[in-house]
């Protein structure tokens, strides 16, 4: 017995399947973030206190700010290892400038320009000269930290606490710490730019297929240089915020910061291969890292554990993402 074939379009499954598949990584980091929050709330009394949460926001702002910019770099298929050293350089330089009597708005502006120029130079080597971003920014990591050490001779440089500058790190606005406001603004701008502008679209296109982007008439070199300018400016902003919060500048600031930033981005589901990026995921990734650090301290677990736990969690999250959520993807 044979059945007559029926020519009809195959039915499509429910749309939410596509939604779940596409946003699996953001959803998983969101779930993981909530799990951490619940765990620490149950185990420590202080975690959910308003003071601690606001403090958490204040402290994680530099990480969020730089991670948002790093999301653009990684989405093009690049990497910027120099952000921690840029933070240190700006951190030290801004303190030196303020000590020399430079008005704070001018000092801040100069630092942002400096960060942008550092990014431009590295972006030029990557985009125009075709040197792998890993190499260029590894060199940057070494050089920039070295310059900071040379300038400060390794000493920490105090910033007068009556200078309005310190409010950038310590002040409040609308009941929120000022750094947190900055982070939210950067995050909103980043999310809009990545998902809804030509620039963001081209960043994704370059990471997915750079030659296809070039053939489609996209200025690949310009966009690639621009993303490194973004991380440079973001790192400078982070350096300013940290200097203002601590009231001093030091060439030893932000050691290993680049790894936290990259971890936050990757935890959030942005692909190291390029072509896929999520600002929301990045922010959840950054907050997760911050919550783990904060919660372990409140739970009176040795702070040395923080690094071990953070590392394990990153490994577990990425492993889950590749094994469980990437089933239907080509890469």
């Amino acid at each position: 017995m044979s059945t007559t074939p029926i020519y009809e379009r195959r039915p499509t499954g429910p749309r939410y399947h596509d939604f779940l598949a596409r946003h699996a990584q953001v959803l998983s980091i969101a779930a993981f973030f909530l799990l951490m929050v619940v765990l620490f709330s149950l185990n420590t009394n202080a975690f959910l206190s308003q003071a601690n949460l606001l403090n958490l926001l204040r402290q994680s702002a530099p990480l969020i700010i730089v991670a948002v910019a790093m999301t653009f770099v990684i989405t093009t298929g690049g990497i910027d290892l120099s952000v921690g050293s840029t933070v240190a350089l700006v951190n030290a330089l801004v303190a030196i400038a303020l000590q020399a009597g430079v008005p704070w708005p001018l000092a801040v502006l100069a630092m942002l320009v400096l960060g942008g120029l550092v990014g431009l130079l590295q972006g030029w080597f990557v985009a125009r000269e075709g040197i792998p971003a890993f190499i260029v920014t590894l060199a940057g990591l070494s050089i920039l930290r070295g310059v900071a050490l040379l300038l400060t001779q390794g000493f920490s440089i105090p910033i007068a606490s009556d200078n309005w500058f310190v409010q950038i790190g310590r002040g409040w606005f609308l009941g929120l710490p000022f750094p947190a406001i900055l982070a939210v603004l950067v995050m909103a701008a980043g999310a809009l730019a990545l998902s809804s502008t030509r620039f963001g679209r081209y960043v994704t296109a370059i990471g997915a297929n750079a030659e296809a982007a070039r053939r489609a008439g996209i200025g690949v070199q310009g966009v690639t240089m621009a993303v490194y300018v973004l991380t440079g400016i973001a790192a400078a902003l982070a350096g300013i915020v940290i200097a203002a919060r601590l009231g001093s500048g030091s060439s030893n600031a932000a050691v290993g910061f680049e790894l936290d930033v990259i971890a936050a981005v990757v935890l959030g589901g942005t692909s190291l291969m390029g072509g896929r990026g999520s600002i929301l995921g990045t922010c959840l990734g950054a907050l997760t890292i911050a919550v783990i650090g904060n919660g372990l301290i409140l739970a009176h677990i040795s702070p040395f554990f923080t690094q071990i736990v953070t590392g394990l969690i990153i490994l577990a999250a990425i492993w889950l993402n590749t094994k469980v959520f990437r089933g239907g993807r080509r890469r």
Binding site: T204, G207, A208
Partner: peptide, 14 residues
């Protein structure tokens, strides 16, 4: 020369 991680409409207008 398509971009795999961009949707159909996005590729048409790349």
């Amino acid at each position: 020369s398509l971009c795999d991680t961009i949707d159909v409409a996005g590729n048409l207008f790349l």
